[in-house]
Design a protein around this nucleic acid. Structure first.
Length: 481
RNA sequence: GCCCCGAUGGUGUAGUGGCCUAUCAUGCAGCCCUGUCGAGGCUGCGACCCGGGUUCAAAUCCCGGUCGGGGCGCCA
């Protein structure tokens, strides 16, 4: 690991080498940090936030940061307008500045005896400068401070929190994860869809919905794209996925729940639960291996912060395929053998999941749940019975350690079973006719899953709370910012 | 929704009835330093969540409120 004495101030988190110039800059800071050797002697214009201004008298070292990286500007009193020099010498942190100057190699820092001299870094020797916007002092949360800041304070000031390098890196990773996931699904023939988020009635039952008024009609925010993605499959779209919001009016308050979250859903025709578990593990494997080979710089930035806070560094360990399958029957057995108090037919609680995680710390599927614990749209084979003779379903979960990432399954495509399941769960099939009608004219057997994007990100980034990896999280007590 | 815990400068903290005119770090302001880079040195600034109560005396104890944290349930 890199020495803490030399934080990687100029670490680059984003490849911006092919970004086009804009009205405010010819190059990004990250670009110059990477391509500095080709740019030495060239005049460039850059813009960014003033991270710190050091030096007095006739010199000033201004560390600038934009969304791509950091770079030092070197200002000499006799090389530019004196008033501007003085105002930048005493500029407040986070003010935005535009600098024009020539790229030069930095003088190497003094290093303690015996330590290697670091590779060359680059700076801009300023010939002109302009303050674009001054920052008030003090900042409500420090961008480069070493002091810990609580999540609640950070979320109240998310616009500043996002400027912190490791937070920026986490959100870049979020974008990468979605992009690699899309990339994989498109390769397997899936097409991206969007389903309505304003709905007339419960789409699954179970959780509470947020009520709203749709002109003169009562309506709800969708808790899941479930029924609509199935209708897309029944309509012959073969393989679909959606990355979109889901809303649940549950008053839960944990590190892994939000009332608005992004669900990554797929649905696949002519497939059973095993088929879509395959899609999922291949997709996750693709995401992990892409991040491991292409985005180690982002992981490094996160680790730089974690180490400074005396937290354990994270590593992207590409999981082996296939993921272990721990059937519900097996899970009950494992929990019981470890002294957990659980009976067949009980839900697997968090402390039970801890016991399973002792044997399967990484990704693992838990297939074949009892039918009575699964929603009405989950399929069952009549002759598949659990350890106590109860009906099993083709529903599954994907867990990482103790945390549930996904729930999915083969869907019930036989309309008479579907209606019976609804009745068994105390629901009226007539209320679901918009859905069940889709099954009356020849239905393709199909399967799918829904994955919590923030939960997956939590695993990848080492975040201890889904709120960390959601830009503006919505929980029981937070609706702003 | 249930159970536990907490609230002190901008931020993060120390504090267990009188040693509190409240600790430390960071920040902010000012001064010194013409190659800094975890910059350094010096001088300042800035806080006990709100309302009630107990007590000679409350940051500290009690009650209520508000806000927050952890765990659980439920789920993704």
């Amino acid at each position: 690991m890199k020495s803490l004495r030399r934080p990687l101030c100029f670490m680059v988190g984003r490849d911006s080498t092919d970004w086009l110039p804009t009205a405010f800059r010819t190059h990004t800071l990250g670009d110059i940090a990477i391509s500095g050797s080709d740019l030495v002697g060239h005049e460039v214009t850059v813009a960014g936030h003033a991270e710190i201004s050091r030096g007095r008298g006739g010199v000033c070292f201004l560390t600038l940061r934009d969304g791509t990286g950091r770079l030092q500007a070197f200002l000499k009193k006799d090389a530019l307008d004196e008033d501007i020099f003085l105002s930048i010498q005493s500029i407040s942190r986070e003010s935005t500045v535009q600098i024009t100057g020539n790229v030069a190699e930095k003088r190497p820092p003094k290093v303690p005896e015996g330590e290697p001299i670091p590779p060359p870094e680059y700076e801009i020797f300023a010939t002109s400068a302009q303050i674009l916007s001054e920052a008030q002092t003090p900042l409500p949360v420090g961008i480069t401070d070493k002091v810990h800041v609580e999540l609640d304070t950070r979320l109240d000031n998310r616009h500043l929190d996002l400027r912190r390098s490791h937070i920026n890196a986490m959100f870049q990773l979020r974008s990468k994860v979605l992009s690699y996931g899309r990339e994989h699904l498109l390769k397997e023939g899936f097409q991206e869809i969007n389903t309505p988020k304003i709905i007339a009635s419960a789409s699954e039952g179970g959780t509470n919905l947020f009520a709203m008024t749709y002109f003169e009609t009562p309506a709800f925010l969708s808790q899941s794209p479930q029924l609509y993605k199935q209708l897309a499959i029944l309509g012959g779209l073969e393989r679909v996925f959606e990355i979109g919001p889901a809303f649940r009016a549950e008053e839960h308050d944990t590190y892994r729940h939000l009332n608005e979250f992004i669900s990554f859903d797929i649905e696949m025709a002519w497939a059973d639960d095993e088929d879509v578990m395959g899609v999922q593990e291949r997709m996750i494997h693709h995401i992990w291996s892409q991040v491991a080979t292409r985005d180690q710089n982002l992981i490094d930035i996160i680790n730089e912060y974690r180490i400074s806070q005396e937290m354990e560094a994270i590593a992207v360990i590409v999981p082996n395929l296939p993921f272990p399958r721990v059937s519900y029957d097996d899970a009950i057995e494992i929990i019981q053998s470890k002294g957990g108090e659980i009976e067949w037919g009980d839900d697997i609680s968090a402390s039970d999941a801890d016991l399973i995680a002792e044997e399967h710390p990484g990704f693992h599927f838990i297939p074949r749940w009892p039918m009575e614990m699964k929603p009405f749209y989950i399929y069952h084979n009549k002759d598949e019975k659990g350890a106590t003779g109860e009906q099993l379903s083709r529903g599954f979960d994907l867990n990482y350690g103790r945390d549930e990432m996904t729930s999915g399954g083969q869907r019930e495509h036989r309309v008479d079973f579907l209606e019976q399941n609804l009745r068994d769960m105390g629901l009226n099939p007539e209320d679901f006719s918009f859905y069940t009608d889709g099954f009356r004219f020849g239905a393709a057997p199909h399967a799918g899953w829904g994955l919590g994007v923030a939960r997956l990100l939590m695993v990848l980034t080492g975040a201890g709370n889904v709120r960390e990896v959601v830009l503006f999280p919505r929980d029981r007590s937070r609706v702003t910012p």
